[in-house]
Design a protein around this nucleic acid. Sequence first.
DNA 1: GTGAAGGGCCAC
DNA 2: AAACGTGGCCCTTCAC
Length: 591
Amino acid sequence: MEIYFQLIKDAETLRRACEQLKGEDVLGFDTETTALDPYEGEIRLVQLSTGKETQVIDLKPFAEAGDLRTMPELAPLREILAADRPVKIAHNAKFDAKWISHHLGVELGGVFDTLLASQIIAAGDQDRRHGLAEVASYFLGTELDKSEQVSDWSAPELSHAQIEYAARDAATMIPLRERIVEKLKADELIKVTKLEFDCVVPIAAMELTGFYLDAARWREVLEKVKKSQVKVADELQNLLSAGVAQGSLFGRSEINLDSQTQVTDALKNLGVPVPETTRGWQLQPLAADYPVVEKLLEYRGVAKSLSSFGENILEFIEPKTGRIHADFRQIGAPTGRFSCSKPNIQQIPHEEEYRRCFRAPEGSKLIIADYSQVELRILAEFSGDQNFINAFISGEDFHTTAAAQVFNIKPEEVTSEQRSFAKRLNFGVVYGIGSQRFAMMTGLKQTDAEDIMRRYFATYRGLDAWLRDAARRVVTDRIARTATGRMMRFRFDEEDRKAISLAQRNGKNMPIQGTSADVLKRALRLLHNEIRGTSAKLVNIVHDEIIVEAEAGEAEITAQKLEKAMCEAGKEYIKRVPVKVDVSIADEWTK
DNA sequence: GTGAAGGGCCAC
DNA sequence: AAACGTGGCCCTTCAC
């Protein structure tokens, strides 16, 4: 493919090029940068392509002349990038959005992201890769050479190969989008695609803002946990080595407490009936009879906190901002949920000692909001089960209300045990729980567990019917969808009973978990529009929870905006069941 | 030395 | 194979 491109290095050529470009409906868009982190590198090139012709803008001469964020010479470029039209087509637009936000002071408008679109079309197929080269090959059948991607973009003069590479990536976006749109339409995925594209800029902004972690406070917590680890490790070591008679002439023989094999051997020597695996749930029943098992579980808990949430997290604090800028994958799971890494701030332990280290800086507040039982409300909406819906409409404690309905008694007569049964079932049905697992987790006999589950589904006939239908449909259709039409495809062998039952549980769970993700994503866009231009900044999201940081004086109004955005987003998909959002203003990430 | 796999466990 | 779903991270083990 022949590439026609122009390298732009001066204001007048840029102005003339932008004059032409701004009339287009869509533009291929890409940037080349000297690092992956916008806080650590410079933005070198911005490429804009009509498909026929590509403008490669070298920002180096501009950067040498002044501040890229404010210089009037770049105004025409900023205008095009900020406008809803032309639509900018980029692969992983979050990346480019962050760079132009931080270095050019522009909020990207009009986004078409070929990475997200590819993921949406793949519908959860884990075998598909979504790098630009793979996506171009899949949709266009053309092979892209990405070898220049990692070349030196800080050189005084870029090579012809580099510039041609930069131009070609941007030019590829035009035909790529055309093919992708055809496929999105054919699979009825337009609505979910818009939802996802609307999220790109809010997420880019969140990553740039980062989440403040009080490092000193974190170290204090670690010191405390470390001390208890040393103590627990020593006690466990003593208990375990009691079973190792040999080699103890010179004191006890050390066991690697983190080694499955060594610990299992030691337990066996002590006469502990070790299950096939030494996972917590299997060991738990033994803890009462064997102090060494109890100590092992205690050790595991402390070790986990220390290894996963220890010093390492401090290394993620960006020196320039003093904050943690985690990496969010917008479509992290096939259900549409986010995932988060480096570090994963969606899995910080719930204990207050950890959470309170994430706090608002001086003069600011955190506004913390989460959806109350959103997945159960979605299940109620989908099933249309009036009893289940009524339990939400009553506004009383949901699990108590459910227990009263299931056991056919007055709410005030519900025992804590009955409430607990109802609670576990309420959560379990979302995942397609079976009586065996329910019995295991409640300690009930299998027959009693089955009896309670029968009562539960007899109370909520509509819910039972919906779940059965979802399981049936996924086997015949081999897809499941959320409220926005987000799709997950299933592949299984007709004969493979285990694969089928897994697909059936997925068929029940995906529409619920996925619609919850849809709701949250819609809320992110509504919120972003509401808080633009204020001190309020999105700082973290955890599946059904949104955390915003704002100047203290704007905390109250921000709380109102956040609640409004989340409720409105919920109501777009949950119409028959009330949507409830709990909001609080706090100094720390605690309830 | 490096990297994948498996076990284990944190979040929702 | 926890017959309860989705992720990421840490550790050990084992192969290259």
